[in-house]
Design a protein around this nucleic acid. Structure first.
Length: 589
DNA sequence: CCCATAATGATCGGAAGT
DNA sequence: ACTTCCGATCATTATGGG
């Protein structure tokens, strides 16, 4: 019943937006599923409305887009930047371009030309203002006419304010990426903002819907609640942190179980800004996560398996003080199965190998000899179930894929890059062995970006990042793919090859911000941190995953726990984070 | 020196069985 | 409720050949 009402409202809003009934019907059909999500229908609607069905050829796409009123130059630029397949992204970008241009015509207020100014006082308006003491009185001087209008229209002030910032950010980004257009009108139209609020409302309704249906499902399916445990159990449970099953943290896209409020709120002392994001392997020796949590203001870790974001498992824990409402994915999303992500393997994949997901990408790969052994065994005993099982076990252990007749081989470096959400050949230029090692130690970008996406509306002008244990820059790639400008990245990374890779990324993506590199966390003492914060106006995000060497299960030799030689650098993360927080609180005064 | 290869288990959570 | 079993895991080191 609730669903029907929900659906009717959705359709009504689509009609309000100017879509025809026929089109909505078609979009619902094409979106598929019994009860498709409103946002997905909206996406399909955009797709339908921008691409007439038969036009799959590139030139026809261009013609269509030009027909919609976009200039040829912009269309070609957008296609070059985002690839011709990714129509949604292109359309979004073009809409932003158009929005920025429209703004130029309609807005004549002297809002500002200072997005590119070097005035440091101006840089941190947002991080300063969203400080915890004045949550409800957000940036009063930003109350331009649009905010008043939105409030008159009945939208809550906070929601309207957030929407304004976020939409303006999109417009700013359009001008960032489109140098030839002029900069005078980087704010969004009222209509655009209203659309945004509508989308956000739908997303929220969707969350509530999932939460509700989840609750029902639990009531129906699960056995009655367990009896109260004994006191002794509670005491020991208090110190141990259990891993969730399924490992979806506060929720992942396209899966039920999304929540929008933390079960255990962030302690007041730990509220951002500055925000921080800490990562490490989920399967540590017992007690390690409890210890890490206790050193990070008792925030409960969010455990997420990246198999919900890509075709490979990656169980990780994240301790962060980010909001968790209105997260969104970066586009394009990776494929969810091995066979879709690597289509060429389909031809050779044996029916008796049932895998659709890969195991965790590690730092070592199988030898070519193993591939040879497997081939020879298969040529002899292809139909022997025992042999088949043994080979599948080997494939799981070494994460092999089928790349030829009876040929199971490890992933190539560029294939790992794809799985982990990096651009093609991100790690080019170093030895093969080093590429595997660096990739095996990296973030899964789509997962991290999903968590960091909440920063986008908060920092339209970009952020200052303190990046510890940067590695090959997974966090920065995530921010870049979210199109959150990085005004400053202070990076600490001990490995020279990793520093080179990250610097290459910084240069190749034409970053406008400053990059400051350190080799060792030891070099970053309180004095240096304060100097940097004075110079740049503070950090908005402290991000990093400390070494897992002594925690990881694959380590036979020195899995010595959090106090191990490398993993104890966790305490440097804490030290530096605390230095940043303390300096930030002094700067606020 | 660099690279490829092989050898090196334990711990944990969860499934399955009793 | 208890036991047993199963599978996954951001790795390190020695060695031999180029």
């Amino acid at each position: 019943m609730r669903n029907v009402v929900h659906m009717d409202e959705t359709v009504a809003k689509f009609i309000e937006m100017g879509f025809s009934i026929e089109m909505i019907g078609r979009a619902v059909e094409e979106t598929g599923g019994e009860n498709p999500e409103p946002l997905m229908i909206l996406e399909t609607l955009f797709k339908i409305s921008t691409s007439s069905e038969a036009s799959s050829s590139k030139s026809k796409v261009i013609d269509e887009l030009i027909g919609m009123g976009f200039s040829e130059e912009l269309v070609i630029k957008a296609i070059q930047e985002h690839g011709e397949e990714n129509l949604e992204e292109i359309t979004n970008v073009l809409l932003s371009y158009a929005e920025a241009e429209k703004m130029h015509e309609t807005e004549n207020e002297d809002i500002n030309n200072n997005y590119f100014s070097d005035d440091n006082d101006d840089v941190n308006i947002f991080s300063g203002l969203s400080s915890s003491d004045e949550e409800n009185e957000l940036h009063s001087f930003h109350e331009d006419g649009r905010l008043q209008d939105l409030i008159k229209m009945g939208y809550p002030r906070k929601e309207a304010s957030i929407a304004l910032e976020r939409c303006d950010a999109i417009s700013v980004l359009a001008t960032y990426s489109c140098i030839s257009s002029n900069f005078s009108g980087e704010i969004a139209s009222l209509a655009e903002v209203v659309d945004f609020i509508f989308a956000a409302q739908m997303a929220r309704q969707l969350d509530e819907f999932w939460a509700a249906s989840d609750e029902q499902e639990r009531r129906i399916n699960e056995p009655p609640p367990r009896r109260r445990r004994l006191n002794t159990d509670i005491a020991s449970d208090d110190e141990l942190i259990r891993l969730p099953n399924p490992m979806i943290g506060f929720g992942v896209p396209k899966e039920p179980g999304l929540i929008t409020d933390r079960p255990v709120p962030i302690p007041n002392i730990a509220l951002g800004p500055p925000y921080f994001y800490y990562e490490n392997v989920a399967m540590t020796p017992k007690g390690v996560w409890a210890t890490m949590s206790s050193h990070l203001y008792d925030i409960k870790p969010e455990f997420v398996d990246s198999l919900y974001f890509c075709a490979a498992a990656r169980k990780r824990g994240y301790i962060h003080n980010l909001p968790i409402k209105n997260r969104f994915e970066i586009q394009p999303t990776p494929h969810y199965t091995i066979q879709e992500e690597f289509p060429l393997t389909k031809k050779w994949w044996p029916a008796w190998d049932k895998r659709t997901k890969l195991n965790c990408v590690l730092t070592c790969i199988a030898s070519a000899q193993l591939t040879n052994k497997i081939r020879k065994r298969l040529e002899k005993h292809e139909r022997d179930p025992a042999v088949q099982k043994d080979i599948v076990d080997q494939c799981k252990k070494w994460n092999l894929v089928w790349v030829g007749k009876n040929k199971a081989a490890p992933l190539e470096p560029y294939e790992m890059e794809r799985l982990l959400g990096f651009p093609n050949n991100h790690t080019r230029g170093i030895s093969r062995k080093d590429r595997y090692k660096s990739l095996g130690n990296s973030f899964q970008v789509d997962t991290v970006a999903y968590h960091l996406s909440v920063l986008k509306p908060l920092y339209p002008k970009g952020i200052n990042v303190l990046s510890l244990f940067t590695g090959i820059g997974g966090g920065e790639v995530a921010l870049h793919r979210l199109q959150i400008p990085m005004k400053l990245v202070v990076s600490v990374e001990i490995s020279e090859v990793n520093r080179n890779i990250f610097r290459s990324f910084w240069e190749q993506t034409n970053q406008r911000g400053d990059l400051i590199e350190f080799r060792d966390v030891e070099e970053l003492d309180d004095h240096k941190i304060e100097g940097l914060m004075d110079q740049y106006g503070g950090f908005d995000l402290v991000i990093g995953g400390s070494p897992c060497n002594n925690l990881a299960g694959a380590n036979r030799v020195s899995r010595t726990g959090l106090e191990g030689d490398q993993s104890s650098l966790f305490y440097d993360y804490c030290r530096i984070l605390e230095a940043v927080r303390s300096k930030a609180s002094r700067m606020r005064r």
